[in-house]
Every structure is written in C-alpha cells, then in structure tokens.
Computed example of a mutant assay.
Amino acid sequence: MKWMYVIFALLAGAMMPVQAGINLRLKGSLGDPVWAATASFAIGTLVLIAYAFATKAPVPSLGMATSAPLWAWTGGALGAFFVFAIIILAGKLGAATMMAWLLAGQFIAALILDHYGLISFNVHTISWQRIAGVFLLIIGATLINRY
C-alpha cells in the first residue's frame, strides 16, 4: 500500500517542472508572471470545485471553517508565492536547476518542521543520516547548477 503513495509522490513531483514550463509559457502570452500565476490558480480552483461536486465531497460548515487557526489559511498564499516563484525561476534557471534548488530548500525546511513537530507534523528527530541526505542533495543541486 505504501508503494502506491510513493508512486503517487513521484508522479506529483514529475508534474512540478511540467507545471513550471506550462506557466512559463502562459507568462509569455500574458506578459506578466503575476497574471500567469493568477490564471493558473483560477483554473486550479475551478478544477477543484468541479472535482468536489463530481465526488460529492461534503461542503464544510461555517463552524468547521472557523475552527481552523488563522495560520492554517495561509496555504493558498504560500501556494501563490510558489507558483509565482517557479514562473520566474523556470525562465532563469531551467527545469533541472530550478527543481534541484527547490528540492534542497524543501528538504531543509522539512527537516526543521519534522524535528520540532511544527505546523501539525509528527516529530521525527534530525539525525546525522537525515542531515547527510540533505547535504548530498545540496551537492547534487550544485552539480546540476554547474553542469
């Protein structure tokens, strides 16, 4: 069962540089990365709404929505920043270099979030093996960037 999630993660990860290229092309047509990111989020929102209706997902009540802490509502803003950033980075760095540095940044943040159990994550203590893995990833990003 866990392998299905690993495959799902690999597919989702593979879509990140594809999304960056698509949004970079959209920026070329619309002339601005902010408008390209806005269009991307608008279409994504429509797709999610259609999916929710198609699967008959229950609509959360107002009480459910107000029970979330304020910081839990910042995910959309962070997503908007990420989409905007990949539009800029894809054009400047290329797909491989962009993804290598994005992954390095994600792993560094993930180690900290896991170690301290921040923002709803379970605690997974930092170990030398985890640090070595991130260090190797940074070396890989450096090699991809250089060559």
Rank of each mutant, 00 (worst) to 15 (best):
M98K: 05
L48I: 13
A57C: 07
W101D: 09
F53Q: 12
F82Y: 12
R130Y: 08
I131C: 13
L143E: 03
M15W: 04
D114P: 08
L136Q: 04
L93K: 02
V83R: 01
L78C: 08
D32H: 14
F121Q: 04
V6A: 15
L48Y: 05
I86L: 14
L62F: 15
P17C: 07
V47S: 02
L62S: 14
W3D: 10
K27F: 05
W35S: 06
I119E: 05
N23C: 06
I22D: 00
V34L: 10
F121K: 04
A50T: 06
S67C: 04
K92P: 03
W3E: 11
T97Q: 11
A90C: 08
M99E: 03
G21K: 04
L111D: 04
R25Q: 11
A52Q: 05
I7W: 03
V47W: 00
I112R: 11
A50K: 07
A12C: 09
M98N: 06
S67D: 10
V123I: 13
N122M: 12
A95G: 00
A80R: 03
S40K: 02
I126M: 15
G76A: 01
K27V: 00
W73P: 01
L46H: 02
H115I: 13
L46Y: 02
P58N: 02
L102H: 04
A37S: 15
G28S: 06
M98L: 09
K56L: 09
A42C: 10
Q106K: 09
M99R: 10
G94A: 10
R130I: 10
A42I: 15
Q19E: 08
I126F: 13
A52T: 09
I139P: 02
H115P: 04
G28L: 03
W3F: 11
I88A: 07
M4F: 10
Y5I: 13
L102P: 08
L118P: 02
L103C: 12
F8T: 06
I86H: 06
A39L: 08
G31M: 10
V134C: 14
I7E: 02
L143G: 04
V123R: 15
K2F: 13
F81W: 14
F107N: 14
L30Y: 01
L113Y: 13
D32T: 03
G140I: 04
I108N: 07
G63T: 14
L89E: 00
K2D: 09
Q129K: 15
A42S: 14
G28H: 07
I112D: 08
A12Y: 06
A9G: 12
L93P: 01
R146N: 05
S67R: 11
